[in-house]
Design a protein around this nucleic acid. Structure first.
Lengths: 130, 130
DNA sequence: TCTATTGTTCTAGTTCACTAGAACAATCTG
DNA sequence: CAGATTGTTCTAGTGAACTAGAACAATAGA
């Protein structure tokens, strides 16, 4: 079962946060075809957002072909998104977690780590000769 | 000189994107006290956002004590944010870039990498025993 | 002083995210 | 069939983000 976390202070619309979390869960294998998402009313009770907002998120996922809504039953995962083997993901996650630990012990705050990661991922400069 | 990139499709308000980019540049040492930010009109011409939007971003940075606006002259960096040594940052960046390359060669798409990174950074589960 | 540059303020309006509440429709269970 | 559960639709309204355009204020430099 996926647990949604909606951060109202992030500035990102709630329906986008919900959609992103489902997509991430799909990529990491936490959600697989056939799994049921939390009901709209569940999410309303858990996260405090309005039913229409949840519905908007679910509808976009359905338009993308990722989930399927069955009235009276629930919303189910329709197709997967992951492109990597679970073992590879585990291995990479462990290595990245180690890197994070090293960064922390080097004195970096969480925001520093975030900035660094974001710079590499969006910038794409992976050669040290720049 | 910082180059702003405003992605209107990201869902994140433009003024937040601008503010975040300045903060990240401060954390990575790309901006230092005394440096001048692009003028409001520059940003307008470059990114296409409205002057009021740019001003909103700059004003929040000024409220945070990070920059100082001097009418007729420009907006200048007032204080730093980085908590780590430049060499440590370089070293960590190289290591993380290597990890990204490894992830790509393992078949992960950029979105997979993003999901994995986000999960580790926000979840904090860095032990493989979960 | 004069001129260009830059930050600043103001008004007016549009679009989108979100809320609130109610009602309807399909499915499952007994 | 009856009742509970779930997704769905609808109307109305609020507030934030953003746009557009104009004008003002302070600084730097000739």
């Amino acid at each position: 079962m996926v647990e949604f976390r909606v951060d109202r202070a992030s500035g990102l619309p709630a329906y986008l946060q919900l959609g992103r979390q489902v997509r991430e869960a799909l990529r990491l294998g936490w959600l697989q075809p056939g799994d049921r998402l939390p009901t709209v009313r569940d999410v309303v009770a858990t996260s405090g957002v309005n039913a229409n907002t949840v519905l908007k998120a679910y509808r976009e996922l359905e338009l993308a072909g990722l989930v399927e809504a069955r009235q009276g039953s629930g919303t189910y995962v329709k197709s997967s998104l992951g492109s990597a083997a679970p073992e590879a993901l585990d291995d990479l996650r462990a290595k990245f977690a180690a890197w994070v630990r090293e960064a922390r012990s080097a004195g970096l705050e969480d925001e520093d780590i975030d900035a660094l990661v974001r710079a590499v991922l969006s910038g794409g400069s992976d050669d040290g000769a720049g």
